[in-house]
Computed example of a mutant assay.
Amino acid sequence: MSAGPSEPVRRDEWRVSHDEREAVVERLNTAAAEGRIDLNELDVRLGLALNAKTYADLAPLTADLPPDVPVNQEPLVLKGGMHGVTRSGRWDVPGRITVYGGMGAVKLDFTETDCRLPEIQIEAQGQMAGITIIIPDGWAAETSRMDAGLGGFKDKTTPQRLPRTPLVRLSGSGGAGGVVIRHPNSWERRKQRRLQGR
């Protein structure tokens, strides 16, 4: 008699790699150089980072630090205007994006991008027509700073984040048109498979 299906392992229980530990060490050293944490706290956090085994061990060590985005990097600004805007296919993803739905709506599709950033900050203002954000499977979103507005806000993403994928930090307001962040739907998945010749 076969055993029943085991419970899936939550992301915070996944094992971290050497590279992921080193990335946290580098970020902690940068934070200390900027005066965000003192040397005693740095020593404690570095010890915890080097001995971390899971994401649950590693994540709290940088949770109170701002995203590691260059301060001189200009954000990408997209405005729906009267006719709408879509950003899809293969495109260079910056660390910061500001999106205004306008009267025509904005669709921001990351599914074909090759993004190696640890985090992407998106400020979304739904305005009249709203905004749709599509992220690949394996990417995760942090949406606690989103305000629903009149049009509402829907987070249809799953919390599982694969290693070496960005965390999308979403803030802003749904406005009148609303904001949605989700993974590709079944039609979009079929289209992508056709384009890849599967």
Rank of each mutant, 00 (worst) to 15 (best):
L48C: 05
R45G: 04
N29Y: 10
A32S: 14
T62L: 03
E41S: 09
A49T: 00
D38W: 07
I37Q: 02
A52W: 02
T62Y: 00
P75W: 09
V69H: 12
D64K: 12
D64F: 09
K53G: 14
L46A: 00
I37R: 01
D64G: 07
P60K: 13
P75G: 04
L65H: 06
M82N: 14
L39M: 05
A56M: 11
L78M: 15
A49G: 02
G84K: 12
D68Y: 08
L42F: 02
V85P: 08
N51S: 14
L48N: 07
S88W: 11
D43A: 13
R87Y: 13
V85E: 15
L28H: 03
L46M: 01
P75Q: 07
G80A: 13
L61V: 04
L58M: 03
A63L: 05
L48R: 11
L46D: 01
L46N: 00
L48F: 08
P70A: 11
A63E: 04
A31D: 09
D57G: 05
N72K: 07
Q73D: 05
P66E: 01
L28M: 08
A31E: 08
A63Q: 10
Q73P: 06
A31W: 13
A56I: 08
V85I: 13
L58T: 01
R36C: 01
L39F: 06
R45P: 07
D43H: 09
G35L: 01
A52E: 03
L28Q: 06
N72A: 05
D57Y: 00
D43I: 01
V85A: 14
G81S: 13
M82R: 15
A32W: 09
H83W: 14
L42K: 06
E41I: 08
Y55Q: 11
T62S: 03
L78Y: 03
